[in-house]
Amino acid sequence: MSQMPPAGVKNPLLELRDVSFVRSGKELLARTNLTLGSGGRTVIMGPNGAGKSLLMRLAHGLLKPSQGTIVAGGNGSPLPRQAMVFQRPVLLRRSTIANVTHALALNGVPRRLRRDQAEQALERFGLADLAQRPARILSGGEQQRLALARAWALEPGILFLDEPSAALDPAATKAVEDAVNAFHANGTKIVMTTHDLGQARRLADDVVFMCCGRIMEHTAAARFFKAPATAAAATFLRGELVLDVPAPSCFTH
């Protein structure tokens, strides 16, 4: 199993140590080690059911691992503040700005500061004019931008994105990618999944390739796209179908 981090994961931010996840007797994630360095854009790739979303939810703390631990990188340091953007944004049945102020409230931002911070975040993502609209009547692209603005307001150390543009048109996809780069430029660690190879090439600094509930490789992006270490990744990159249960293709190295 080549789970080597790409040369030079410096300043580890979050580490998964021997993490596995079992549901109804099925091992959906086998003992996994993963070190996420600070900064940088990590893209998790792999066929459906490979465990990409599961890995992110475990790292983010939405799911408890059956075994293993998730720890902050520098031993003893607290977990960095995190946010997550989902494929289909979940917005509260409130105004656009109230969606942001509520997130700030949950993160303990004092009431008097919330409105200003929320307005700045909306402004940043071109939503200032829509601040008073009910969030649920925004278009799909606007809703995802609101989800990103909400995450932005929280100033996360790590931002997880689960297929953030899978349901969007090219213009809205561009907006999501610009946002990812804005977070990145701001020093936020990016961890995202995508099915879009082009998007992965545009954004990834390093790639985690998964198959059958395992990390097959974790490689610097340039190397991964040029010379993947595993046969499964090579197949995947050629655009062929990697059928994962019980895929022998996952395990031929």
């Binding site: 939810r57 939405l62 997550m84 049945r93 509520h102 949950l106």
Partner: peptide, 24 residues
């Protein structure tokens, strides 16, 4: 519908009660 998003933003179940009552 809200669980993952609210958990992601750091809301426990007790804190979620007023949020959910208002949204419903």
């Amino acid at each position: 519908e809200y669980r993952e998003q609210l958990q992601s933003m750091g809301s426990g179940r007790v804190r979620a009660i007023p949020t959910l009552l208002w949204d419903a």
